[in-house]
Write a protein that binds this DNA or RNA. Structure first.
Length: 452
DNA sequence: AAAAAAT
């Protein structure tokens, strides 16, 4: 299974002449459907690249939600949420996700491009509301992300009275021996695995759709690979797999291919685009106390919007928050050390703007969607265990700002040669300049303030 | 190193 990653060499001429996707569509709808230009197995349209192994996979993009033939109550929910037309990734992914027979999909696109809405819509469409047992499992790497996804699903299904959702996360419990009635389970890997294999609160054979959000972290060896694999193993072979992620490594791709056979792969190209509206800076510091002072200078100089400050360890985050609070600064802390109740309340306060500055760890580096965040500060640069630059985490962290094309600022605090080397590697990797900033210099600080 | 499961 694991070795089965090869692609057929090329399509036969018969396949290339086969225009069946078009035939099934009424002429009235054709003008709104854009056929994707094919070049062998890899097809591309604008900056979207599609790879498919099954020539019968639908290959068109859809320019309006009506054309997806969604249930009217679901369509109403979509519009109620303010979505008018599908985003780029949704255009291509939705026809595939909703196709019959179901297609496995591996989709890559940057943060803020509408991934969540895409798979939530697919999840809700696949559910049979008249059946009162779980039919969909959606896994997220963190508590916060699971809740955020669940909230999107709840909103979108406002008018689908009979669709119910259940969170499988820390703090949630089910009465022993009972069976879940909700059609949709949104959760984190450990809890879901427990519920499925240990307590048998749901029958994995009845799951029709399995979603992995942030799939790259989920199937990474360092991440939740083992738990995900064990959950996948008890599902039907035919269960539809939907993997969504902002970044993919080749390793992860191999794993995803193995547990999601015959997947269609969609990539939204040009990851640099994410960085185009984010201005990146660095500040040289000698010690962590020095970093602290620079931070306070920035904090005092820029009061527009909200800021997220990332530390590499929980203890560093704790130290920083304690220092800042002792000096009278209003900051909040969110890390895995907090209880789930604390985590909810801190994130809610930050969402509502009651907290302006949030100090956190990599727990919030991915997916969290807070529009008002204009500054991301890397108090510690993101590094791997072997102290190599962690490019993916860097991209995800600074991607917390500059969402949906808005402008954002990222500031990196660096100490010593080691840090500087890592910074230079990051700069080279993304081919985007990271400017030097002197927090004692008024002109420099003005640059930050000017970006409203 | 962080996160995710109780224990």
């Amino acid at each position: 299974m694991l070795g089965n990653t090869h692609f057929p060499k090329k399509e036969s001429p018969a396949d290339l002449q086969n225009n069946d996707d078009e035939k099934e569509l009424p002429a009235s709808e054709k003008s709104l459907l854009q056929k994707i230009v094919r070049t062998g197995l890899v097809t591309s349209k604008h900056d979207i690249e599609v790879q498919r192994r099954d020539p019968k996979s639908p290959l068109y993009s859809v320019k309006s939600f009506e054309l997806l033939k969604l249930h009217p109550s679901l369509l109403k929910g979509v519009y109620e949420m303010g979505y008018n037309a599908p985003s780029k990734i949704q255009e291509t992914a939705l026809p595939l996700l909703l196709a019959n027979p179901p297609q496995n999909l591996i989709a890559q696109s940057q943060s803020g491009t509408g991934k969540t809405a895409a798979f939530v819509l697919a999840m809700l469409s696949r559910v049979d509301p008249t059946l009162h047992y779980p039919q969909v499992i959606c896994l997220s790497p963190t508590y916060e992300l699971a809740i955020q996804t669940g909230e999107v699903a709840a909103k979108m299904s406002t008018f689908c009275a009979n669709i119910k959702l259940r969170y499988a996360v820390r703090g949630e419990d089910v009465e022993k021996g009972s069976k879940l009635q909700e059609q949709i389970i949104v959760g984190t890997p450990g809890k879901v695995l427990d519920w499925v294999t240990k307590y048998k609160f749901l029958d994995p054979k009845k799951i029709k759709v399995f979603v992995l959000d942030e799939a790259d972290i989920m199937v990474d060896t360092q991440g939740h690979q083992d738990q995900c694999f064990r959950i996948r193993k008890v599902l039907q072979e035919s269960c539809q797999m939907m993997f969504f992620s902002a970044t993919y490594t080749e390793n992860v791709m191999r794993f995803a291919n193995a547990i999601a056979p015959m997947s269609v792969i969609i990539r939204l190209k040009r990851e640099e685009e994410t960085l185009d509206n984010i201005r990146q800076y660095y500040v040289t510091c000698n010690t962590k106390e020095d970093k602290y002072n620079s931070l306070v200078n920035i904090y005092g100089g820029v009061t527009i919007g909200q800021a997220m400050i990332f530390c590499q360890t929980k203890s560093m985050a704790q130290w920083l928050v304690t220092e800042m609070i002792n000096q009278g600064h209003a900051v909040a802390l969110l890390s895995g050390e907090l209880t789930v109740q604390q985590r909810i309340s801190v994130l809610d306060r930050f969402r509502e703007g009651k907290e302006k500055v949030l100090v956190t760890t990599n727990v919030l580096s991915r997916g969290i969607d807070i529009e008002q965040v204009t500054i991301v500060i890397n108090f510690d640069l993101p590094v791997t265990v072997s102290r190599e630059p962690d490019y993916d985490t860097y991209l995800h962290r600074i991607g917390r700002t500059g969402r949906f094309g808005k402008k954002g600022i990222a500031i990196n605090l660096v100490t010593g040669d080691g840090d500087f080397r890592i910074l230079k590697q990051i700069e080279e990797h993304f081919c985007k300049p990271i400017e030097c900033l002197n927090t004692d210099n008024a002109d420099d600080m003005e640059k930050l303030g000017a970006t409203d």
